[in-house]
Computed example of a mutant assay.
Amino acid sequence: MEIDIQSLDPADQYRLISSTVVPRPIALITTWSERTGHNAAPFSFFNAMGENPPVLAIGLEDKRGSGELKDTTINIKETGEFVVHLVDEALAAAMNVCAISFPPEVSEIEQAGLTLAPSSKVRPQRIVQAPVAFECRKIAMIEVNQHRHITLGEVVRMHVRDGLFDMETGYIDPDRYHPIGRMFGRLYTQTRQHFEMEVPAYEAWLAGGGKEASAGR
């Protein structure tokens, strides 16, 4: 089946993209402004894009229905600073509360029962309950259209929950870190099942039979 995705309306394009590029990590982003104070909102068009410097990318969308920019987008535009938190199983319910369109006078952070603590290098505060937090400064914001802004952020400081960082390997311990992933619609997934694959050297691949060995497995 071949789909002319550019001929579809934006809602159908979104459904196709969001239901095929899965699972996606979830960025629970805190920002700050003089007008509204601290804000938190989740985004699943998100991933890491490289190192030296460490870079994160987030697809910021507008408010569904109204078409207005979200506070997150406005605040990053104005201040250039934000904190990205990864969402684990324990934080999932609070993240979902932060997705509610509360009126301006209601704090989604308070309603979700979350606690903020000062960041080290940026003005927006970080969520204490998050397993991982990345303090970021904006590198660029690309306005793909008036409803979608792709933002690149440089990670300037990282916070990790005690016990998650494996000093020997330099990795986060997968047996203690249980992030959730976004599928599409109301669907999310856990990440508790892991498997390993090692990429062999070309010579070793040839010695093992190459294509024939791979096809026989």
Results as ranks from 00 to 15, higher is better:
88 D>C: 00
175 D>H: 11
148 R>N: 12
191 T>N: 02
216 G>K: 15
74 I>H: 04
35 R>K: 15
3 I>L: 13
50 G>H: 05
40 A>I: 04
169 T>E: 03
67 G>H: 07
198 E>H: 09
132 V>Y: 02
149 H>Y: 15
47 N>T: 07
101 S>A: 10
115 T>I: 03
39 N>K: 09
98 C>F: 09
172 I>K: 02
215 A>Y: 11
168 E>N: 04
40 A>Q: 10
180 I>Q: 02
134 F>K: 00
202 Y>E: 11
44 S>Q: 03
212 E>H: 15
137 R>Y: 11
47 N>F: 05
169 T>A: 03
20 T>E: 03
201 A>H: 15
82 F>K: 04
140 A>V: 15
75 N>M: 03
3 I>P: 08
204 A>M: 06
17 I>W: 04
51 E>Q: 12
43 F>K: 00
192 R>M: 04
215 A>M: 14
120 S>V: 15
93 A>F: 04
17 I>A: 05
11 A>H: 09
213 A>M: 11
103 P>I: 08
179 P>H: 04
79 T>V: 06
166 D>H: 02
149 H>S: 13
121 K>P: 04
212 E>F: 11
193 Q>A: 12
13 Q>S: 01
50 G>F: 04
84 V>G: 00
7 S>Q: 12
196 E>N: 10
22 V>Y: 02
163 G>C: 05
130 A>W: 01
18 S>N: 06
99 A>V: 02
166 D>F: 02
76 I>L: 06
159 H>I: 10
117 A>E: 15
43 F>Q: 00
63 K>G: 02
162 D>T: 10
142 I>Q: 05
68 E>P: 05
110 E>C: 04
28 L>T: 01
126 R>D: 05
137 R>W: 05
6 Q>I: 09
168 E>K: 03
